[in-house]
Every structure is written in C-alpha cells, then in structure tokens.
C-alpha cells in the first residue's frame, strides 16, 4: 500500500476499523493536513453560526466575538491532544504527541464536512425539510465518534475497554487543564493590575 498523503486521508476516513491501524503500520499521516483540518473546523464553526439559513436560525448581529469559536474548536482540540498524550503516556500508550494530533484531526473530517454541508443546505431547504440536515448532522457526528475511538485505539494499541477508560480520563484531564488555564489568566490579570497601579502611583508622584 503506497498511498500519497492525500490518499491516506480518504483511506483513513473511509475505513473506520482498519484505516488508522494501517496508517500506523506505514507511519503515514501529515501534520500539515491535520492542521488544515483543525483550521477548517474553526472556519466551519464560525460559518455555522453566522451564515446559517435565516429560515432556521438567526443570531443577533449587534455583537460578534470570534474568541468563543476559537476556544470551542482550536483550543479544545489542542487540550484534547495534550490531555490524551499526558494520560496515555502514564497508561502504557504507544502514541506520540504528533500521531495523536494527526489521527484525531483526521477523525474530525466527517464532522467538519457535515458542518459545511449543513450550512450550505440550510440556504436551499425549508423548515419542513429540516430532517435531511438533521440526518447529515447525526451521520457526521456518529462517524467522527467512531473514527476518534478507532484513532485512539490504534495510536496507543489499546484494547476496547482501555480505550474507553483512556477517553474518559482524557476528558477529565481536559477539564483540569482548562480550569488551570482560566486560573492562570486571572492571576496574570491581577499581576497586571498590580503593576499598573504601581505605575500610576509613580506617575502621580512624579507629576505632583
């Protein structure tokens, strides 16, 4: 099996059970493509919220903030990668950070595709036909869950039950990481406020 990087993508996505196993065997997978998928996911999340067909859904246009979408896609994905790597190195997993990143991103492809497809179709369908979009959404999500499970299983060479346990622990690790991140941000803000108040104090002294 000699496939190009692009062919490996379609192979992995269309073979949920053997795809990632073969990829591991052949040491295939490209960081570039994986990064592109994650970035496309971010774009899809923004489009899904802003450019959805008006007959289904509308967002108030008064404010738009891109940070939540960024956190909900790219930040979540990075915490997943780091969290999974930290949990699985402790649980005898064989995956490297690079492989976890690539395989997880490849597993996201059906979901990201379904987001684009749904957003596109929402401009052509009416509410009575919403069921088609719903089916596409469910298919994309289900397929991605299956692929993600298969990806974690092959990248670490785990058994079925161990994979489930690893995924649960990863989610817990992600929660801890996000909590620490928020706390870190708050603490840095306090440091900033402290430094700024010293600066204003000195500025006043110099003036008076």
């Amino acid at each position: 099996m000699d496939l190009t990087d692009r062919q490996w993508v379609s192979y992995a996505v269309t073979h949920p059970f053997a795809g990632f196993e073969d990829m591991r065997w052949k040491k295939a997978g490209s960081v570039k493509i994986a990064t592109a998928v994650v970035c496309l996911w971010f774009v899809a999340a923004v489009l899904y919220n802003r450019l959805y067909g008006f007959q289904f859904y509308s967002e108030p246009d008064k404010i738009f903030n891109v940070i939540p979408y960024f956190v909900q896609t790219i930040v979540i994905f990075l915490t997943w990668t780091v969290g999974n790597w930290s949990v699985c190195t402790l649980l005898d997993g064989e995956g490297t950070m690079r492989n976890i990143y690539i395989y997880s991103a490849y597993a996201l492809i059906p979901y990201v595709a379904s987001l684009y497809l749904e957003t596109f179709l929402s401009h052509f369908l009416i509410r009575d036909e919403y069921i088609f979009m719903q089916v596409i959404g469910y298919l994309g999500q289900g397929w991605t869950i299956l692929l993600l499970f298969s990806a974690i299983r092959s990248v670490h060479q785990y058994s079925f039950l161990k994979t489930i346990a690893a995924i649960c622990l990863t989610v817990a690790a992600m929660a801890v990481m996000l909590f620490l991140l928020v706390m870190l941000l708050l603490l840095f803000e306090q440091v900033y406020v402290f430094a700024y108040s010293i600066y204003t104090e000195i500025a006043y002294r110099l003036k008076v």
């Binding site: 067909g53 008006f54 007959q55 289904f56 859904y57 509308s58 009416i126 509410r127 009575d128």
Partner: peptide, 15 residues
C-alpha cells in the same frame, strides 16, 4: 422578514 427578525415568515416566503 429579515428586518423583522422573523424566521417563520422568512421560511414561508422562501418556500
């Protein structure tokens, strides 16, 4: 319907 932010009216008109 878009100006009124009324999705249901837009849906009917779009149909």
């Amino acid at each position: 319907a878009k100006l009124a932010d009324s999705n249901s009216r837009y849906n009917k008109a779009f149909e």
